[in-house]
Write a protein that binds this DNA or RNA. Sequence first.
DNA 1: GCGCGTTACTGACGCGCGTTAGTCCACCGA
DNA 2: TCGGTGGACTAACGCGCGTCAGTAACGCGC
Lengths: 347, 347
Amino acid sequence: MGRSRPTSADVAARAGVSRTTVSFVLNYRTDIQIPDETRQRVFRAASELGYHPHTPARQLAAGRSNVLGLVLRQSAEQVAGDATLAETLRGLASAARAAGSRVMVEPLAPEGTYDRLLRSHQADGLIVSGPRTDDPSLSQLAGDGFPVVLQGSLPGLDVPSVDIDNVSAAAGAVRHLLSLGHRRIACITNAPLTYTAAHERLQGYREALEAGGIAYDETLVEEGAFDAASGERAANALLGRTTFTAMFVASDVLALGASNALREANRRVPDDVSVVGFDDIALAAYFDPPLTTVRLPAFELGQAAGRALLDRIADRAVALRTLLPTELIVRGSTAPPVTHRDRRTIS
Amino acid sequence: MGRSRPTSADVAARAGVSRTTVSFVLNYRTDIQIPDETRQRVFRAASELGYHPHTPARQLAAGRSNVLGLVLRQSAEQVAGDATLAETLRGLASAARAAGSRVMVEPLAPEGTYDRLLRSHQADGLIVSGPRTDDPSLSQLAGDGFPVVLQGSLPGLDVPSVDIDNVSAAAGAVRHLLSLGHRRIACITNAPLTYTAAHERLQGYREALEAGGIAYDETLVEEGAFDAASGERAANALLGRTTFTAMFVASDVLALGASNALREANRRVPDDVSVVGFDDIALAAYFDPPLTTVRLPAFELGQAAGRALLDRIADRAVALRTLLPTELIVRGSTAPPVTHRDRRTIS
DNA sequence: GCGCGTTACTGACGCGCGTTAGTCCACCGA
DNA sequence: TCGGTGGACTAACGCGCGTCAGTAACGCGC
């Protein structure tokens, strides 16, 4: 009862060795020769006492924390609506665990506060998700040599980043629509264009169109903002001012909102309007009709970011830009435009 | 360049005081009298040097880590499909931050590994989400006096828990259907019945029926399992063996899958079958038709769990069971059964 | 002038561990 | 016998901080 947590000294006493030896054994120091018999004695003593090393003490002595910080710079609504966050977190945690580290999460970290995680040695490195250009403390941290990896892109910053190739992924989605015969393809961005990912996906839309010989028409483009409501608003704006037979919505969540707008305007999907989303959230396959979309490897993104960060912490070489592959998932929300199908039926 | 991180000794030297005084000032020790002038000198020295206390050292000396651990015991699919996780995490982090703590997340923690977080003093307390009865290390931890709070319920365990009142929430949803005139109401659980929440929601369904004078009919009940696919399967099973004019699906995600099954069976929602979901995920309002569901205060759940845990850590009294209120959100997926409407039209 | 309380500090210990620079001993070749 | 070598350890320092027990200076009443 009165006895408190055992320390490594208790283990040492029980095993009949010094504390140093206990430390060597329990840390699996291969550069130190210790006979198997002694090793076993230490292990046995530790387990009999129920010994668990005191993490802060170990962090203090070793000079590192074995903690990866995940900083979410997105707004509350973004975090709430981010269906892939949990998967990304899982991937990150899996990479961390493989290296004996843990993950500390800092959601909605106000600018200029999360750097403390690093400067106070609470974390060995940081993964910054949803970075914004207007974030001086980020470049400051990187400039001071702290290990930082970006989840998402932020051009012009000399910090390793892990992301998907938004441009080509979006272009692929739009090419799919083009190949079906669509010519007037609207676009709703996933976020305001100040967000890099939104900008890049729009860029992919534009490039695919131009490669297909179609001039970019900005009246076909509307900005969304993270949630389904914004998708609905954007679609209504588009419906009110122009015509199109397909739309590329750079987020599944917004695509659902946009589909609602189409339905209320008596446009059927895909008969009147084809819709392509982005992200492949778990529910996308159960939309009506099932949503054609771009699959984003959420788990792998987290895992890759974690590995990159661990590499940076260990001073191993890290690619400045890691791009993970995406995949177009064709489901029921896309079809050739009616005119084409008519022609085909006639011929 | 060569100069390394400043320590509190550097601050002390620069301010012309002792390290002890620096510690008192920077920790806002109100029980120690220090003239404002000295106080300011210390603050100035600290900020000029860019001093940040070394967290592990502070944790070691103070004997506490100011870290709350969030342990997710759910399976990978559950985590991936849990649309409210991000909100809960936000709430938890907000409670933690208010108390000067941070949140460490341990997803998919294998049984018997997450207790290390506590035993090694890496966290001051644990919030265990999705606890299972068959988890000896959980009761062990609680028995050893470690601060643990459950997110979700686990009867028969002497550990504080924060949850919603699943029974009455489900009963409320079913009463809504009863009040519309439905008599044959099917039920799809959100998870296998070994999960407490699933069991409780089914219990609420049952109680509401019996209070309405309707005998419980187990052929109207089917077990789901976290994802939309299981909701679709369950609905198909029900459609294949019985008839009903409404269904209570204890999860929005499964409700979407079930709706797909209904559509393919040429049953219209709500004309032929009314559907009530559970959770009020962000997308529920954009389903077709918009889903009537039970709103779950995700953010507040996380916040309440965090506060309860902080109370336990500080040895303040904590209610054994905190139940947060839910709210029935009536949308377009529920309506009176056709027979009733016909009657009403005739009269 | 002395005792005593109050204010404003400080010296030094300890938190539990990692690690460096050794020590001691057995054994081996010469 | 002795120098030398390698194996098997250990003593002791330091990581950066919180905090207890103390001290010096000062004012004040008598």
